[in-house]
Amino acid sequence: MKRFTRRAAIIGTGAIAAAHAEALRAHGDRVQTVAVHDLALDRAEAFAEAWRIPSVHASIDELLANEIDLVHLCTPPSTHLPIALRCLEAGVTVLVEKPPTLSLAELDRLAEAAAKSGAYLATVFQHRFGSGAAHLRGLVDAGTLGPSLLATCHTLWYRDDAYFQVPWRGKWETEGGGPTMGHGIHQFDLLLSVLGDWERVTAIAARRSRPVQTEDVSMALVEFADGTVASVVNSVVSARQTSSLRFDFEKATIELDHLYGYSDADWTVTPAPGSPDVTWPAGTSKSGHHDQIGLLLDALDAGIEPPVSVGDTRRTMEFIAALYASAATGQQVRRGDIKDGHPFYGSMNGNRWTFG
């Protein structure tokens, strides 16, 4: 397969932008970071100097005129839709940070724009791309572990009141939700990437402590298409922080315990009694932006949709909408229930549900 040298730009120079710049630099033989934009021009200039990015642009239109192939979108969530639309309409592929949009309706608009322009939209869900997660999906696909039976997914983090003083955080109209939308999303996206289609969700959510409009904790019971049952817990009030996943298969239990990123050493395997040992890779790759960007570049070279595709993203976003809808109404929500015209299609709080 022929390799091309891509021209990338970073829009938004907050904390997460450094992870993108570092990963792009690691693939420097395949992609050049040539431009940066931020509403705070001085911050953009400092970022460009730190990462040796040659040009800083005062506007997105000016940046897009710079023969850009790929935009890394690292701005606050409420800006993702308008900026991504401009990029896609210009024929530029977009890799967008989580959450990709504030609602299913917004995501569907971006999907339409991508299909019309021929450019691609992909979402940063970097936990899918560590070698441990790839190995687990391979074992599942091969049937090595037997049927999936039970799973748990816990994102128990701590964010103090000061964290929410950033104006866009903790508000439905600017962040789209609480820890379900902005924190636990990485863990349960990994869960979904392993277990596949979910079928129904029963959930609760509450604001227990933080000065926000949204929830600060949520819990969901989930049934998957293959019959697997799972629990998903998201929190920003937990003093002992952990990110953990557990998969109970017929022939083994697979567990992952880490915080903000994992290596192969963070996975454990417990064979069921009478079952053979399961081999596990050692020290190959960590979760993070590096592997996802490498696979994105591979896809662009091949002319195919990169991971995580709009379809992959939509399954995760629909799960979030279903969790919120169930928590707000007290009713079980099935996959496919939330569509155009449903209150939770256009916003994750149904345009009315709030805790603050």
Rank of each mutant, 00 (worst) to 15 (best):
V140E: 12
R3Q: 14
A265N: 13
E67N: 12
D340N: 06
D291Q: 14
F247N: 07
V36N: 05
A9S: 06
A327I: 02
D108Q: 11
Q241A: 12
Q292I: 04
A8G: 11
L136E: 05
S244C: 10
H289S: 12
T214S: 10
G196H: 07
S238A: 15
A48Q: 04
G184P: 01
C87D: 02
G118F: 05
H127P: 03
A252W: 12
I53E: 02
L156Y: 05
K339G: 11
P307W: 05
V56N: 03
I53T: 05
T214M: 08
H186T: 11
P179Y: 07
H27P: 06
L190S: 13
I83V: 15
T354L: 11
A328P: 01
I204F: 11
R207S: 13
C153E: 02
I53V: 15
S285E: 10
K171M: 09
M1A: 12
H135F: 07
R210I: 00
P271S: 09
R315Y: 04
V308P: 00
G227S: 11
G14A: 14
S55I: 08
A17S: 15
W157N: 13
G356F: 09
L300R: 00
R314P: 02
V278I: 15
T13G: 06
E175P: 05
V92K: 01
F47Y: 04
G132N: 07
L221K: 11
V31G: 04
R25T: 12
E175H: 12
V31H: 04
R128A: 09
D337Q: 12
R7N: 13
T180S: 14
L85P: 00
S244H: 09
L81P: 01
A122Q: 06
